[in-house]
């Protein structure tokens, strides 16, 4: 991992189109400003990981889906 030290109001540039600025530091919280093209998804890592993990869970579907259809009908 590349480690850089920056001060408030300084920034880094990733590739040609993404800039991450340090807006504010308060205690153990850091406020970031991110400029990026609209088609670049930006997410908190824990959200990204929860979707990734849920995809893996979803790929482990039991073979018999008809049970699900029945369970859904009974609710």
């Amino acid at each position: 991992m590349l480690v850089l030290t920056r001060k408030v109001e300084e920034s880094i540039t990733i590739g040609n189109h993404i800039t991450v600025s340090i807006l504010e530091v308060r205690g153990n919280q850091v406020k970031l400003g991110i400029k990026a093209p609209k088609d670049v998804p930006i997410n908190r890592t824990e959200i990204f990981e929860s979707i990734l993990n849920e995809n893996i869970n979803a790929s482990e579907t039991p073979l018999d889906l008809d049970c699900l259809s029945k369970a859904v009908k009974n609710t």
Partner: peptide, 19 residues
Amino acid sequence: SLVTIPRGMIEAATANLMG
């Protein structure tokens, strides 16, 4: 939406509306 069916717990199935 992708559906997740926990093993052996079909009644606890969920759908991913966030993704």
